[in-house]
Amino acid sequence: MAPELIITGVIGAALILYTLTAGADFGGGVWDLLARGPRAADQRRVIAEAIAPIWEANHVWLILVVVLLFVCFPAAFAAISTALHIPLTLMLVGVVLRGSAFTFRAYDPKPGAGARRWSQVFAVASLITPITLGVTLGAVSGGFERDPVSGLVQTDFISSWLAPYPLAVGLFTLVLFAFLAAVYLVEETDDEALRAIFRRRGLASGIAVGVAALIAFIAAEGAPEIREGLAEAPWAPLLHGLTGVAAVTALVAIWRRRDRLARLAAMAQATLIVAGWGLAQYPYLAVPGYRIDEVAAPEGVLWPVIGALAAGAVLLVPTLWYLFAVFKRSRAGRVSQPH
């Protein structure tokens, strides 16, 4: 197998894992922002306890994506970070504020006005990053022309991302992250009333995912390559079918309180969505000037990186499993959490 395809696959897998883990952490911020009613404080507490031990590790998937891009596809990395300077900078502001505010709130021994302010910053910053991440992923689906002389991207720094399709993908990403978070949160508490609240949020945001997907598909008018991939590729009907089955399964499972099944179905749905986006994007990293095989670093660079990834995975997989085993072992089976 061509080494650049292996690396592209790893980047895709890292994006899926980022969505399933860190995505849900950002989604938790959305539900922190929308927490209402007499149980609002309890909702926020469940969200914070669910995120606290794992968000920093979850966040590293994104760093892995960045590192693999600049090591293995340097021209594409340079092009993307040049043309999308503005949304990426906004995303970073979101990353910084979300993480810092969350920690400041958790570690303030004098809860009061300061902690409440950080709480608001945390919640609002949790919106910025998913939207700008989605805008970035939407924007690479078109308009990345390469200057034949300099080899650099031709860009006005605005038009490639300030367009209906990237913005629709931004909205979709936010809704998807919120949906994942709501479904996960059901199993993060033993309080039946809270579980019911999170189930309702899961249902509402699950339906919103469908609506946002439709909006993105309509907006894809402006991104013909992606639209073609999503609509006409030979794998498209199967993928859409599976995604639909997962989506409906998730909603029915939430409705029937099959929480574990709902979580698995939602994860499958999100995985299929990101994978489908990746397949539609193939063979481009950024359309149309940056094809995977054309912008890959030489094989002498790629194979050692693959070796490092394999060696790293040997260490990483068991430790990640351990982390989640310590903090996320099924709560459903336990009667109560001793505090």
């Binding site: 031990p53 794992i54 920093e56 590790a57 966040h59 590293v60 760093i63 892995l64 590192v67 693999l68 600049f70 090591v71 293995c72 340097p74 021209a75 990395f77 340079a78 970070s81 670093a297 030489p298 660079v301 050692p304 990186v305 490092a308 990834l309 790293g312 260490l315 990483l316 430790t319 990640l320 351990y322 982390l323 310590v326 903090f327």
Partner: peptide, 28 residues
């Protein structure tokens, strides 16, 4: 980065994994 990225990829990739492990064990 377009010039240097592929050349200094090894330390950056390894740093990524080291940071991953640090974040995981710090969480624990």
């Amino acid at each position: 980065m377009a010039y240097a990225g592929p050349i200094i990829g090894m330390p950056f990739s390894l740093e990524g994994f080291a940071f991953f492990l640090e974040a995981i064990f710090l969480g624990i």
